[in-house]
Structure formats: structure tokens, C-alpha cells
Design a protein around this nucleic acid. Structure first.
Lengths: 212, 212
DNA sequence: GTCTATATTTAGATAGAC
DNA sequence: GTCTATCTAAATATAGAC
């Protein structure tokens, strides 16, 4: 009987905690840290404001958790693909682009969220981001890249050249979607279809930039 | 005597007003609307908080002015180059990339500022951005693009395809500079030199994407 | 764990002296 | 025009009942 109550209580806790976090992700990514009111998160989660502080103690603590998670979502895409022993360099490039499209299709607000908080000098995220360098430089991906360069398959340049082009062409169209929709005179549905059509070409273009 | 006093007073006004605006641009672009405290702007301008309200009446009014100006800086680059009767399509592409580099070298915070405020549903900027579509579609640039397509010089696609690649490869590296600096293991000076070296290649790459 | 009511802190805006 | 001091509104965080 005690166990059952305990379990039930635990489940309820987990569920509420998750509801708050889900709401926090949405609101923080939408409005940024400063623009978010804890009341909005509480309302979005369908709970009371006091309860939010009961679970997470403060806005800042909650934010750190969300920030790390968002950063994780973003980085995990690379790290998962990048060390796959079974794919070629070119396949990996395609896989990364595919994975970013998948993520950003659902959460287009993540890049601006991360980059604007990072620019404002957020500590938490800075530390997390620091790890990126090592992840890249010790990856299967890096080895394959070096090997391809050695074979003169691609122009000899540091890997950042390619990473930059890949990320630019993949991520920017999601970040700037309101602006680009206006310029291109498309509604949201049309725009998304357009990005989907464009996706395989991005892979091709990135490979082209490595050759010239 | 009255005139002299009047002139002196006017000059003083203009100077203070400019100081406040310069400070506002810096702080707003750095921290966004919600993250900015009017006290910070006042301090940055070296004046008192009350004076800010004396000149601009409210935070929101001041913000609108800054927002329109930032947006203007950003759009003007395109609009100036885009209707030049004396340059070819390819030269225009080079000129746009050059002009963005010039702007973003000084004010790398502009794109995130505009895009994050736009995403949050800012009214002022939305209206301003709406004009973009017409600017593009009635430009000399657009006519040259259509002509080149008609001559089968480039793959037949709406102009937004090219605009997107150009903006992505040019603007994103500035937006994501903190992140890309870490990945590429560069300090700020090295990173800037890198972007400068890369600039002519961006022109080439954009033209390539139009051919395949 | 969850709520209502309230205390506390922060930030925008104004009054009034100089 | 410019400042100091203050008012007011908004938002975070907590106390205490259920």
C-alpha cells in the first residue's frame, strides 16, 4: 500500500515535471530568456505558477535545464552521425543534412534561441559548446575527411570550411523563414515543401564547394 | 543673441539624441528588446534615465526607431546594389556579398536581432519586411536573372533559390561566429581573416549553385 | 503536490528642482 | 535640457491553507 502510493506519487510528479519542461521549451525557444514570463510557462503547462517554482526553484534554474537540452538536441545530430563506422564521408554529409531538416522542421526556433543566448554571454551554454571542437576533431568523420584530402579528392582546406557551408545552407533557411517566405512570396506550407525539394541539392552543393 | 542660443541649444539636443540612439542600437542589438533595460541604455550613453524618456517618451518608441533603422541598414544593401544599371548579374552578386561583409564586420548582431524580433511577432518590423517582395521582383536584378534563365545560362528556378544560398552562406557565418570559432579553433582575429579569405569563394559557389 | 494570496524585487515612467 | 527622487506596474518568488 505504501509502495503503491509512492509509485502513484512518483508518476504524478514525473508527469507534471515533464509538462512544465515541455511548456518551458516551447516558450523559451519562442521568446528567449528575458522575454519569457514564468506565468506564460505555467499557463502553457496548464498548472499554477507556484508549482513551477516548487519543481524548479527559479526561472534561471529551469532555463539552464532547457538550454542544455536544446543544445544537446542540436549537437546530438552531428555526434550521432559523425562517428558512424559504416557510412562514407559523402553519406555522412547527407545524413547530417537530413537530420537537421528533421529537427528544424519541428523546432525551427532552436538555432536563434541558442545563438542569441550564446551571443549574450550565457555561461551554461558556453561550456557545453566548448566540447564541440574535440568531438569534431576526433571523429571518424574527420579521419575520412583527411583521407579524402590526402587522395586529392577534394581541395585541401581545414574541415571548418565544409562544416560552415553545410550548416549555413541547411540551418539559415529555417532561421530566416519569415523573411525568406516574404521574399519568395510563399505561405508556410509552400515554403516547407520548397525546403524539402531543395534538400538533396544542398548535399550536392556542399560536395561541390569541397571541389572548388 | 537669441539665434545663437537657439542654435547652441539645438546642437546640444542633436548630440544627446544621437548619443542615446547610438547607445540604444548597441544595447538593443546585443540583448534584444526584452533583455534590454532602459537604465543600461542611459548608462551606455552617459546620461540619466529620465533624459531618455524626455527624448523618446518610452522604451517602445525608442525601440521602433532602432528597429526600423537596423532593418533599413540591412535592406539598403540589397536595394542599392540590386538596381544598378551598370553592373551585370554576376557583378551584383559579388557586390551584395561584399556589402554584407562590410556591414556585418561592424555589426554582426544585426541579423539575430532582426530575426529574433521578427519571430516573436514584432509589428513594426513585419510591415517593413513586407516591402521586400516588391523590391526584389521589380528590380533590374530580377530582369537580368530572368534574361539569363531564358538564355539557358542557369538552371530555371525561381530567384528565391539563389537569394537563399547567397544569404545563407554570407550571413550565417557571422550569426554563428561564437559557435564556429569554437569548432574551427580560432580566435576572433583569425576568424575574421578566414571570412575575408573565404569571401571570393562564396561568390563562385553561389554562381555554381545556379548552374546545377 | 497543488492551489490562493502575498511578499519582494525589478524596471519603466514621471514630478519637480535646478 | 538635465538631474535626483519617487511613483507605479509588472514579474519573480514564497508562505501557508488544503
Amino acid at each position: 500500500m505504501k509502495n503503491q502510493a509512492s509509485v502513484s506519487s512518483t508518476m504524478k510528479t514525473a508527469k507534471t515535471e515533464q509538462k512544465i519542461m515541455a511548456a518551458a521549451i516551447k516558450v523559451f525557444q519562442d521568446k528567449g530568456y528575458a522575454g519569457t514570463r514564468t506565468r506564460d510557462i505555467a499557463e502553457e503547462a496548464g498548472i499554477n505558477l507556484a508549482l513551477l517554482n516548487y519543481y524548479f526553484r527559479s526561472k534561471e534554474k529551469l532555463f539552464e535545464i532547457i538550454m542544455l537540452q536544446s543544445m544537446g538536441d542540436f549537437m546530438q545530430i552531428m555526434t550521432a552521425v559523425i562517428n558512424n563506422e559504416k557510412t562514407t564521408l559523402e553519406q555522412k554529409i547527407g545524413d547530417i543534412i537530413e537530420a537537421y531538416h528533421e529537427l528544424l522542421y519541428d523546432k525551427p526556433g532552436i538555432p536563434i534561441f541558442i545563438l542569441s543566448e550564446l551571443r549574450q554571454g550565457n555561461h551554461t551554454i558556453f561550456l557545453k559548446a566548448t566540447g564541440l571542437k574535440k568531438i569534431y576533431q576526433h571523429s571518424v568523420f574527420a579521419k575520412q575527411y583527411e583521407a579524402a584530402i590526402a587522395k586529392k579528392k577534394y581541395t585541401s582546406r581545414p574541415m571548418i570550411w565544409m562544416i560552415m557551408n553545410l550548416m549555413s545552407m541547411t540551418i539559415f533557411p529555417f532561421m530566416a523563414s519569415p523573411l525568406l517566405q516574404m521574399i519568395g512570396d510563399m505561405n508556410q506550407k509552400e515554403y516547407r515543401a520548397f525546403l524539402k525539394t531543395r534538400k538533396p541539392l544542398v548535399v550536392k552543393w556542399v560536395l561541390q564547394t569541397m571541389k572548388s
